[in-house]
Design a binder for these strands. Structure first.
Length: 836
RNA sequence: GCCCAGGUGGUGGAAUGGUAUACACGAAGGACUUAAAAUCCUUUGAGCUUCGGUUCAUGCGGGUUCGACUCCCGCCCUGGGCACCA
């Protein structure tokens, strides 16, 4: 690192960013130049970073890349006349903070506060122009009270329900995990085993929005196509039919299929082990014990087991058969765990000739296989023989009275966690239907769903009662010493008496720990919301961050919304589907009047370690931003983060490249001194044209997040002009185009040339002469499509005179060598191709 | 298995139908210096060359086109995501 060591020794022109970076950062904060003004008449531009989780380990050089990108973009838009809102906040609920807090024996707010301070100072150090007056923190009661209010909208609309369901229970973490929190059958966090356990859970009925979530992707032309594809696949809408098979067991088995035309080839049925219909059918089975044993064994399997072994297992239900409604044949019934109880009806018709999985299980039990489609036509299918697949589909569905049905892969969202550090549900439980009905007469009534949410424990019915928005202070997390996992399936809150036991005033809806006459005893809900909750609506809070009454005012969302650019890591399916879902529910609740939250998405590629591996603290291959800033300054660091490669591509970090960016800034600095000394009024046309070209390219590239080529065009320009005399006006324009990337140095130069206002509130320079005004263009001369020579001609040259010129070219002559010219193709402004 | 994104010099990358290798790093040589660093200049895809040029190169094989890194078809490889969804 000799270069870095010698930086301070330069004797000619001292470029010492450490002398002015801090100064400008402070002045920008003092003069509030990044504050967004919600009353300006300018067009708005709302730029949001996916907000970080402030973890205990500090940032490495990879983290700020996205923030630098959006900072450059925001500065550019501000200079281009937009009223820019570019805020920042913290997604601070969740397991890691809770675990650190338990380890350190401190309350999580302490951990979170410390981590945020650390993260914030690291961001500040880079000169990022956030509007800190709008900073948010999902764990701040002033924020999460609104998350709770929005939950009440879900509840009131019947979208928040309780279900006892098989959930992913992780004993090590003492909590239930969402599918998205599980990687390769183990918990994403800590890599612990995960088991299926039945448990009462809160779920959000995202499936009710599945169609809108798919269909509205069409409203998002500025989203990357691959994300839209991923979301469509995740939601997994398929259109098919549902109909019944009668059985000798006195129950009908409903099945779902997308290939109803293959019914003639259905030679058996397969039922999912856990499904209700299996329970009914099995009671008629001769081998009831054997089937029940199979069901028991499969229920013990973990997700990991299921993934490791894909061998088809199952058991034939003896003594019971089903009737194929097309052929009239009696066919066997199999219970097998490759059929999922959670999809479709939990039962399928097996067509081994046309489905690989069915074929595998057919082989295990030597069941028959009938091919019913050959080269697009029906065969072995009686009256259908010779029909096309489409015709057969139509006929069969009429014959068996099948209902058209859409099914989705996406599941309802398991929304509760058995942890302490999350938003408490704004729900208390009351015993007995009479009490519930009494409550529905009062003010609580209008917050109740049509179908009551309840569960049965022994003989007692427990009903979910919402805590009204004005009384949510009773639903703040209690500040207690002990909040460790209980080790049972219940969360820590269940072990805290002062939390669980409460009283409800049926006349007002108020909840308190204090008993009053006529108040009803209730139990507070002890689950908390998952980390996804706070991050599913936070962009809206930025628009109106200090509103105490509502999450955000309608007016503020109309003024700023939707988010114009949303940038961050690739969360193709989880966060971005949840966020869209919440947004649509809020739209239905009348809180917002646009249907998609993010107009445009820009994904960020991770920075990798120099060997191409992932940066991780354990490997010791991380590089701290502080170190880099100390060595080359914040501007050079920012510039390099942008220059290193395309924004969306993962790139290995390499210190060597950093040097080039620092050198570039030093050369600009030296040029500044020269320009200020000579104080020239007009540059040569070549210099002016070079600068203009660069400014245009930089602007165009920033607009489409191609920061790397923007930087290189400024470098090219500097190479062209640095040994010429540059007029002060041209140089100022150049500096303006560099300002979004290197805000400190450009601000310093800006003040040196006598500007009083900040460069960051100046205007993006307009090209002062038309680029390429000299009227000549350089054409490629090609022979048979191969570039051989070039020629500079007037832009509007006549084709005939051009041909004469080209044919007399030495290089062309050499390649012609007497051969006949068949034709000449002229592509205006680009190339002339001589075909021989 | 399915879906997505990629494959260009020693390295990060540029060029989305028209001058392949911009920009930067690294490397070699030179200027300045007692010397070194820094800085500046020159060279830098590979081969052949009479130093004018010329041939070959964008994972592999075909195709479309006057012309293909770019579009189409078929492979190979790398990375990421999903995964028994009937």
């Amino acid at each position: 690192m000799q270069f870095f060591d010698n930086l301070k020794k330069g004797d000619f022109m001292k470029f010492e960013p450490e002398k002015f970076e801090k100064k400008w950062q402070e002045r920008w904060e003092e003069s509030s130049i990044y504050r967004a003004d919600s009353s300006s008449k300018k067009p708005t531009c709302f730029v949001v970073d996916m907000f970080p989780y402030p973890s205990g380990s500090s940032m490495h050089v990879g983290h700020p890349r996205g923030y630098v990108g959006t900072d450059v973009y925001s500065r550019f838009k501000r200079m281009s006349g937009f009223n820019v809102l570019h805020p920042m906040g913290w997604d601070a609920f969740g397991l890691p903070a809770e675990e650190t807090a338990i380890q350190n024996k401190e309350y999580p707010t302490v951990t979170v506060k410390r981590n945020i301070e650390k993260f914030k100072s690291q961001l500040m150090m880079l000169g990022l122009g956030y509007d800190w007056s709008r900073e948010i923190n999902t764990t701040d009661p002033a924020y999460y009270v609104h998350t709770q209010k929005i939950f009440l909208e879900f509840f009131r609309r019947g979208l928040a329900q309780n279900k006892t369901m098989a959930v992913n229970w992780c004993p090590e973490l003492g909590t239930v995990l969402a599918n998205e929190d599980i990687v390769d059958g183990k918990s994403e966090r800590g890599n612990h085993p995960v088991f299926q356990r039945p448990m009462r859970q809160w779920i959000l009925a995202i499936t009710q929005y599945a169609d809108r979530l798919v269909d509205d992707l069409a409203l998002l032309p500025h989203w990357p196509e691959k994300i839209k594809i991923a979301q469509r696949n995740w939601i997994g809408r398929s259109e098919g039919h549902e109909f019944d098979f009668s059985t000798t067991a006195n129950v009908n088995v409903p099945i779902f299929t997308t290939r109803i035309e293959t019914l003639p080839g259905a030679t058996f049925l397969v039922l999912a082990p856990e499904s209700d219909i299996t329970r009914k059918v099995v009671s008629y089975a001769k081998n009831q014990d054997q089937v029940e044993q199979y069901v028991e064994v499969t229920s013990q399997k973990t997700d990991l087991d299921r993934q490791l072994s894909r061998e088809k297992t199952g058991v034939i239900v003896e003594g019971v058969t089903a009737k194929n409604p097309f052929t009239g044949m009696q066919i066997p019934i199999v219970v097998a765990d490759y059929v999922l109880s959670s999809y479709g009806t939990g039962a399928i018709m097996a067509v081994p000739a046309h489905d690989e999985r069915d074929a595998e299980i057919a082989k295990v039990f030597s069941l028959p296989l009938i091919t019913v489609i050959e080269t697009g036509r029906m065969v072995n299918a009686d009256s259908l023989n010779g029909d096309t697949v489409e015709d057969a589909r139509e006929k069969v569905s009429v014959m068996v009275d099948a209902k058209p049905k859409k099914r989705y892969k996406i599941r309802d969202w398991v929304f509760s966690r058995q942890r302490f550090w999350g938003e408490p549900f704004p729900i208390v439980w009351i015993e007995g239907r009479d009490n519930y009905e009494l409550l529905s007469q009062g003010p609580i009534g209008k917050w109740l769903p049509n179908e009551p949410v309840f569960y049965v424990d022994g003989l007692i019915e427990h009903f979910a009662v919402p805590v009204l928005p004005e009384f949510l202070h009773a639903m703040r997390l209690p500040e207690v010493d002990s909040y460790q996992p209980t080790g049972t399936l219940e969360g820590p809150l269940a072990g805290i008496d002062q939390w669980v036991k409460a009283f409800l005033n049926p006349k007002t809806g108020e909840v308190s720990n204090q008993y009053n006459v006529d108040w009803m005893p209730v139990r507070r809900e002890t689950n908390t919301m998952p980390q996804w909750a706070g991050s599913s609506w936070y962009w809206l809070r930025y628009m109106d961050p200090h509103n105490e009454n509502v999450p955000f005012s309608k007016g503020s969302s109309q003024y700023w919304g939707p988010v114009n650019v949303y940038a961050g890591a690739d969360h193709a399916v989880a966060h971005l589907i949840y966020a869209r879902f919440w947004h649509k529910v809020m739209q239905d609740a009348g809180m917002v009047d646009f249907s998609e939250p993010f107009e445009r998405l820009e994904f960020l590629g991770y920075i990798l370690a120099s060997d191409g591996s992932k940066i991780s603290k354990r490997k010791g291959n991380s590089r701290s931003p502080e170190e880099v800033v100390q060595q080359v300054g914040a501007d050079a660091f920012r510039l390099y983060e942008m220059f290193i490669g395309p924004f969306e591509k993962p790139i290995p970090w390499n210190d060597d490249g950093l040097i080039g960016c620092r050198r570039f800034l030093e050369r600009v600095w030296r040029l500044a001194e020269k320009v200020i000394e000579s104080n020239l009024a007009v540059s040569s046309p070549a210099v002016t044209s070079s600068i203009n070209k660069s400014i245009q390219k930089v602007g165009n590239d920033i607009e489409v997040f191609r920061f790397n080529t923007a930087v290189s065009s400024m470098m090219t320009c500097l190479n062209e002009i640095q040994h010429s005399d540059v007029a002060i006006s041209d140089f100022k324009a150049y500096i303006c185009s560099l300002a979004p990337f290197a805000p400190h140095m450009t601000e310093e130069i800006w003040s040196m040339v006598g500007q009083k206002e900040s460069i960051h509130v100046s205007s993006w320079p307009k090209a002062t002469v038309e680029v390429g005004q000299d009227g000549n263009v350089v054409l490629s001369i090609q022979v048979n499509g191969k570039h051989r020579s070039k020629i500079s001609v007037p832009r509007d040259i006549e084709e005939d005179s051009l041909k004469t010129l080209v044919l007399s070219d030495q290089s062309v002559q050499r390649h012609l060598s007497g051969k006949e010219v068949k034709k000449i193709i002229y592509v205006s402004g680009k190339a002339v191709n001589i075909v021989i």
